[in-house]
């Protein structure tokens, strides 16, 4: 295969910290020299707890936040500084975490899906047909077009958000915790839908989540993000069965399991004695783990 669909090289984002008087008081490195790439047609899972910088990476890829340093290469083309433009939006789209707030409550499903169509100059005459096609793609009945978000369930709203993101036929879909706001029973069905769509439309996914059990089933490659850095990356099976980094082990050990089979897969590691792991402790662990 040719160049990877998405390549992130040394991506860094620092946020200035100001004191009470607005003077600069240092900087927070939210994303620190992150490098990874996603081969065409694959699912890359980016795992990490809240505050690890997962969403900031998604926002930089979408052009909602300018990166401090580093490059973003899409389809072999360096598009740093051009993220967020319309030509770019045709190739990359995003599904947001909370469908309750990513759909405008005052716009019907059809009006919401029409936004990308109109913005990208889709012919008006074919609009209704395309909306029906998209709703069918995400397995919603066509008459949902005239509904408002408050008339839909969480899972249905997220399907609408997926349909909207797919409207201009992007190649890469960034999924920022697409199931975390949903009921557990609905999560699996949304993931199944995404897997199907990925196969049908030859999509590449960047799947951002803190939920490792979902990632195990969905992603071919995973990267574990910790305090803005990728501490471990590799094929999902390898990372999950033989984690090299203490933080990965810690994350895996905290996945709730329901069967003995899964329990057997769980890595046995000595946890830090009965305390919630703090950033300092884990940093110390990381230092210790380095050869």
């Amino acid at each position: 295969m040719s160049a990877p669909m998405l390549e992130i090289v040394g991506l860094t984002k620092t946020f200035p910290v100001r004191d009470g008087l607005g003077r600069s008081a240092g900087a927070v490195r939210a994303v620190d020299n992150v490098t990874f790439s996603i081969p065409r047609g694959q699912v890359y899972g980016l795992a990490g707890e809240s505050g690890s910088g997962k969403s900031t990476i998604a926002r930089m890829i979408m052009g909602l936040t300018p990166p401090t340093a580093g490059d973003i290469l899409l389809d072999g083309e360096n598009i740093t500084g051009r993220t967020g433009t319309r030509a770019y939006g045709r190739k990359v789209q995003m599904v947001f975490q909370n469908p309750g707030s990513s759909l405008n409550p005052r716009r019907t499903v059809a009006q919401s899906i029409a936004v990308p169509l109109d913005a990208h100059g889709h012919p008006r005459r074919e609009r209704a047909g395309r909306i029906a096609e998209l709703l069918d793609m995400v397995q919603l009945p066509a008459d949902f077009a005239e509904r408002y978000p408050h008339e839909l369930s969480g899972g249905q709203k997220q399907r609408v958000a997926i349909a909207r993101a797919l409207a201009v036929a992007p190649k890469l879909l960034v999924l920022d915790e697409p199931t975390s706001a949903l009921d557990v029973s609905v999560q699996a069905r949304v993931i199944d839908l995404l897997v199907d769509l990925g196969r049908q439309l030859d999509l590449t996914f960047l799947f951002i989540s803190h939920d490792l059990s979902l990632m195990r089933n969905f992603a071919q490659q995973v990267g574990v993000l910790y305090l803005g850095q990728i501490v471990e990356t590799g094929p999902t099976a390898e990372v999950f069965t033989d984690p090299q980094h203490d933080y990965t082990r810690l994350l895996l050990a905290s996945v709730p399991v329901i069967s003995a089979e899964e329990e057997a897969m769980r890595p046995k590691i000595p946890l830090i004695d009965g305390e919630i792991p703090t950033a300092e402790k884990l940093l110390a662990l990381r230092q210790a783990a380095k050869p």
Binding site: G63, Q93, V115, R164
Partner: peptide, 20 residues
Amino acid sequence: EFIEAAETLGASKFHILIRE
């Protein structure tokens, strides 16, 4: 989020102000 969503979907500033 729906304003950011509209931005990433390529909506114009006019659209965001008047329609969203």
